[in-house]
Amino acid sequence: MDLKLDHRTEGQLTIVEVEGEIDVYTAPRLRELLIDLVNKGNFHLLVNMEKVDFLDSTGLGVLVGGLKRVRAHDGSLELVCTQERILKIFRITGLTKVFGIYSSVEEAKEAHGRDK
């Protein structure tokens, strides 16, 4: 499956919907979207990975790159993910300590609201 990307804004939060495979071939498209969103002033990003079938280190690099960009604007990049096979990659690389990872968009929105 290829990569499908979509995004919407809810309050201060920009929700990025990702579906399909994030790998060395498709990750540049996600990178471009995250850069574009930040350049347009969206500094609080929530990436919903519930429909991601595959994620490799290239995809992790893109997410870390996005995190660095939003942090430069005192922003945030958090994730929604409950799939064990995807979470395992974050655990192996120690990135569970770097990203806020939520079990649903609603839970992330509530947490984001509490932080405001």
Binding site: R31, L60, G61, K68, L95
Partner: peptide, 29 residues
């Protein structure tokens, strides 16, 4: 490098793994 840190990089750097070795780290895991 996937992305270069622009600011607040030092804040994250202590938490981030060596991104250049991430692929082999994943394989090893």
């Amino acid at each position: 490098e996937p992305e270069k840190a622009s600011a607040n990089g030092h804040e994250l750097s202590g938490l981030l793994p060596d991104m250049s070795d991430l692929g082999l780290a994943v394989i090893a895991g």
